[in-house]
């Protein structure tokens, strides 16, 4: 059973639709009590960094997540903003992030000469380069995913599992023990997303 966190941001139904489509079970948790029984968690998110952190605090979910993810080591997958919130900070906001992973979030810095052709937000389908073996993405298979974002994560090479390119190479996915983050939207990426969510279900 996958628990999808509802903190007021993000398209929960799209994630739930895809999990059900691939034969998985999921439920939506809006308060700390509903999170207690989770054995896998998805942290979705669309919106701004501070709005996300404020909502996680206000709902009491931040502490509950700490207990589940850091103390109990429950596997968690952050999607888009959900991934960014797992780092220490973001150029987009002033509030500290969850800080589970050493790293920060920066706005795409596209050079003047590229500005006409490389637009921000990075919106559309892009390919990945998987940089090390991991349980979410296979190194051999070609895959592409749907992205919509103006900010991206900067973290250590050791935590990075895949990169993509928009003007320059950036971190498209990371993994650190039980903590996974993807910048793209697997729930909107056809069979490539289904495969990734299936892999997450099987961790």
């Amino acid at each position: 059973m996958i628990t999808i966190l509802n903190y007021g941001l993000g398209n929960l139904n799209s994630v739930a639709n895809m999990i059900r489509h691939i034969g998985g079970q999921c439920k939506i948790a809006s308060c700390p009590d509903e999170l207690l029984s989770a054995d896998k968690i998805i942290l979705p998110g669309v919106g701004s960094f501070d709005a996300g952190m404020t909502a996680l605090k206000a709902t009491g979910l931040q502490e509950a997540l700490y207990e589940k993810v850091i103390v109990q080591q429950t596997p968690i997958l952050g999607i888009c903003l959900g991934m960014q919130l797992m780092t220490e900070r973001s150029e987009e906001g002033n509030l500290p992030g969850l800080g589970w992973l050493l790293g920060e979030v920066k706005r795409f810095a596209i050079s003047e000469s590229q500005k006409l052709s490389v637009k921000v937000p990075h919106m559309g389908w892009n390919r990945l380069t998987v940089t090390r073996p991991n349980s979410l993405l296979s190194v051999e298979e070609e895959c592409r995913f749907y992205f919509v974002h103006s900010y991206h994560v900067v973290c250590s090479e050791a935590d990075t599992i895949a990169r993509s390119r928009h003007g320059y190479d950036f971190v498209a996915a990371f993994a650190h023990q039980n903590i996974f983050g993807v910048q793209f939207h697997p729930e909107k990426s056809h069979r490539f997303g289904m495969k990734l969510l299936k892999n997450f279900m099987e961790i």
Partner: peptide, 8 residues
């Protein structure tokens, strides 16, 4: 529709 759409 949304239930059938695994794309944006």
């Amino acid at each position: 529709f949304a239930g059938e759409c695994f794309m944006p």
